[in-house]
Design a protein around this nucleic acid. Structure first.
Length: 431
RNA sequence: GUGGCCGUAGCUCAUCAGGUAGAGCACUGGAUUGUGACUCCGGAGGUGGCGGGUUCGAGACCCGUCGGCCACCCCA
C-alpha cells in the first residue's frame, strides 16, 4: 500500500514551529489594533475574473501560477494567489468605502511555483490595506507600522527598507516606451530572460539579477525622470516623513512591482539572510484598483508580509527566542481501573479550580514505571500518582520531578489527602 | 518550465573493488513484584523511493521515473 503524501509545496507546520507562528500572529494583531486596523476574514476562493482584472492578464501569476478550476456549475474559480484583490472586492461589495478603511487579514495564498527556500505553493501572508486615503501620509503610516513591527519582533537589524516611486500609469507608460526603445537597441546584449521580458513586462528587467543586464541599465533612461509632478512631490514628502520619524531607508530606483495595479509609492523590506527569497514584506499604492474592480474611484495603499519568511528569519537570527511547544505542568499517573476513575475525577476537579495548569492525564495503561517515564518526557514538574494504596486511603501521591537545590518543599514526593490536592498544587505553582 | 545536488530504520547518518545492511537518537522490555531523568543488559523496526538494464551477483554502476533541497524564473 503506497502512502499518501502532502501536495508538493504545501507543508505541514508541526508543533515545534507553531509557537513561533502564534507569537508572530499575536504581535501583529496587537500592533494593528493599536493603529486602528480592523481584521477582515475573506474567502480562499474567488471568481477567476477577479484576479485577472486586478493582478493583470499578462503577469506570470495569472498566466501560469493560479490554481483555477471549474465549479460544478461551470464557472471558473481560483484559489487566491494574493489577498489585496479579495479585500478590495469585499470592501466594494460590503459598502465599506464611504469612509476611510484600515483593514488587515492573514491566511494562506496559493501559487503553482517550483518550491525553494522561502517559497512554497501554499504560503501564508498577513496583508494590510488602507482604503480611501490619497495622501502620502498614509504610505508613511504603513511603513512606520512595519518598522515598529520589526522592532517588536527583534528583526529591526535584519531587514532593510527600500523605497521607490513608479508614478502614474501615464508616466509609467511613457517611461516603458523609452526603456524599451533603449533596450531594443541593445537587444543582443540582453540575457535570454530579459529579451523575453522586453515584450511581456519590460519594467521587470530593472530588477534582473544578471550583472551584464544591470550594467547595461546604467546608461538606460531612469524612471525618476519620467515621474509626473504629483508623484515626485509625494515621493519627496515620503522621504521627509520617514527621515523625520527616524526610519532608515534606501532609495532603490530599480524597485518595481510584479503586479499591475501599483502606482506611485512602492516599498520592500528585504533581508540578506534568507537566500534568494529575501523580500519579507512588500507593498505600495494602488489608486486605480478599486475603480478597475467596479467600485467608485478610491485611492488605496497596502502591503503584504510573507509569514514563512518571517518565521524563517526569526529562527535564523535567534529572534524567535526559546518559544517551546506546549508542555505539561502536571502529569497524572494511574494504575488500575479504580485508580483511573479516581484520577479522572480528581483531575477534572483541579481543572475547575486551577484552569491555568496544563495537566496531562495518562491514557493507555502501563506500569508505574512506564507511566512515570511519560511523565518525565512530558516536561511536567509534578506527577500525581494513583494506585491501589491511594484509592484505599483516599489520597494521592504528589511527586516533584524537577528537584532543584533550594526548592524547599518542592522535592521528593509525599502522600496528600485527596481533599488537599488542590491546595498542594496551588502552592507548588504559586510562582 | 530550466539547472545542480541528493533519496539506506520514525529522525540524523555510516558502510562497500559491486558479494544480498550498521550506528547514534527515538521507541520498547528488563536490572528495580508501585516510581521518571543517569547507568547496564536485551528487543522490535529496512522489499536500500519506484521501474528497468549491465552482472554469476546491484543499496552501490547505467537509464527512466517519482520525491526532496537549492538556484534560475517569479514573488511575500
Amino acid at each position: 500500500m503506497s502512502t499518501i503524501r502532502a501536495i508538493r509545496g504545501m507543508n505541514d507546520i508541526l508543533p515545534d514551529e507553531t509557537p513561533h507562528w502564534r507569537r508572530l500572529e499575536q504581535v501583529v494583531c496587537r500592533l494593528l489594533n493599536s493603529y486602528g486596523y480592523g481584521e477582515i476574514r475573506l474567502p480562499l476562493v474567488e471568481h477567476t475574473e477577479l484576479f485577472k482584472r486586478s493582478i493583470g492578464e499578462v503577469t506570470d501569476i495569472v498566466e501560469k501560477e493560479m490554481y483555477s478550476f471549474d465549479d460544478r456549475n461551470g464557472e471558473s474559480l481560483t484559489l487566491r494567489p494574493e489577498g489585496t484583490a479579495g479585500c478590495v472586492r469585499a470592501a466594494i461589495q460590503q459598502g465599506l468605502l464611504t469612509v476611510p478603511q484600515r483593514l488587515w487579514y492573514a491566511g494562506p495564498m496559493f501559487r503553482y511555483e517550483r518550491p525553494q527556500k522561502g517559497r512554497q505553493r501554499q504560503f501564508h501572508q498577513i496583508g494590510v490595506e488602507a482604503l480611501g486615503v490619497a495622501s502620502v501620509e498614509m504610505d508613511a503610516e504603513l511603513i512606520l507600522l512595519c518598522a515598529r513591527l520589526w522592532r517588536r519582533l527583534g528583526l529591526a537589524g535584519s531587514v532593510e527598507l527600500q523605497i521607490n516611486s513608479i508614478g502614474s500609469s501615464a508616466a509609467r507608460r511613457a517611461y516603458r516606451a523609452a526603456l524599451v526603445e533603449y533596450l531594443s537597441a541593445h537587444r543582443a546584449a540582453l540575457d535570454e530572460d530579459s529579451q523575453r521580458r522586453l515584450d511581456s513586462n519590460p519594467l521587470r528587467i530593472l530588477d534582473s539579477k544578471n550583472p551584464d543586464t544591470q550594467a547595461l541599465l546604467d546608461a538606460a533612461p531612469v524612471l525618476a525622470d519620467y515621474l509626473d509632478a504629483e508623484a515626485r512631490d509625494d515621493f519627496d514628502r515620503l522621504r521627509e516623513l520617514l527621515t523625520a520619524a527616524g526610519v532608515a531607508f534606501v532609495v532603490n530606483p530599480r524597485l518595481v512591482r510584479g503586479l499591475d495595479y501599483y502606482n506611485k509609492t512602492v516599498f520592500e523590506f528585504v533581508t540578506e539572510r534568507l537566500g534568494a527569497q529575501g523580500t519579507v514584506c512588500a507593498g505600495g499604492r494602488y489608486d486605480n484598483l478599486v475603480e478597475q474592480l467596479g467600485g467608485k474611484s478610491t485611492p488605496a495603499v497596502g502591503f503584504a508580509m510573507g509569514m514563512e519568511r518571517l518565521v524563517l528569519l526569526m529562527l535564523e537570527t535567534g529572534a524567535a527566542g526559546d518559544a517551546a511547544p506546549a508542555q505539561a505542568d502536571v502529569y497524572a499517573v494511574a494504575v488500575g481501573e479504580d485508580a483511573h476513575r479516581e484520577a479522572l475525577v480528581a483531575v477534572e476537579a483541579v481543572r475547575d479550580s486551577l484552569p491555568g495548569l496544563a495537566i496531562v492525564q495518562h491514557t493507555g495503561g502501563g506500569s508505574f514505571k512506564s507511566q512515570l517515564k511519560r511523565a518525565d518526557k512530558s516536561g511536567a514538574s509534578v506527577a500525581l500518582i494513583w494506585g491501589e494504596d491511594e484509592v484505599r486511603a483516599q489520597s494521592v501521591t504528589v511527586k516533584f520531578l524537577r528537584d532543584g537545590a533550594g526548592q524547599g518543599d518542592k522535592t521528593g514526593q509525599r502522600s496528600v489527602p485527596r481533599d488537599q490536592l488542590e491546595a498542594t498544587l496551588r502552592a507548588a505553582f504559586a510562582d
